[in-house]
């Protein structure tokens, strides 16, 4: 394991992703999500919106970290708001 050079932030990150995936699976199992059309151009299920949200959040982080001097927390905050909008109305 030591060759994987773990750090606390990255471990936290993967635990977070793991928890999101697990809870989404359980949620899906308990009450299956039905495809619907929101403001996105395609019909999506809850899981689709989560994936879109995570992927766009990654790019939001890259954009802010790479091309501005803002703190990464700003990117995280924007992503969280975007994620909420997407899950609710996407």
């Amino acid at each position: 394991m030591s060759w994987m050079v773990w750090t606390t932030p990255t471990a936290g990150f993967f635990i977070g992703i793991g928890l999101i995936l697990a809870s989404m699976s359980i949620w899906q199992y308990v009450s299956p999500s039905i495809e619907r059309k929101g403001f996105l151009p395609i019909k999506t299920t809850r899981g689709d919106r989560l994936f879109i949200g995570l992927l766009t959040s990654a790019f939001i982080h890259l954009g802010i970290v790479g091309f501005t001097d803002l703190s990464i927390l700003v990117a995280t905050a924007i992503s969280a708001i975007w994620m909420a909008i997407l899950m609710r109305w996407g």
């Binding site: 060759w3 994987m4 050079v5 750090t7 932030p9 990255t10 993967f14």
Partner: peptide
């Protein structure tokens, strides 16, 4: 996961690395 771990550190070997 390992690649993600590398990406936030300056790694010389498994014991000598900086966040």
């Amino acid at each position: 996961m390992t690649v993600v771990n590398y990406s936030v550190q300056d790694v010389f070997d498994t014991n000598t690395r900086y966040f």
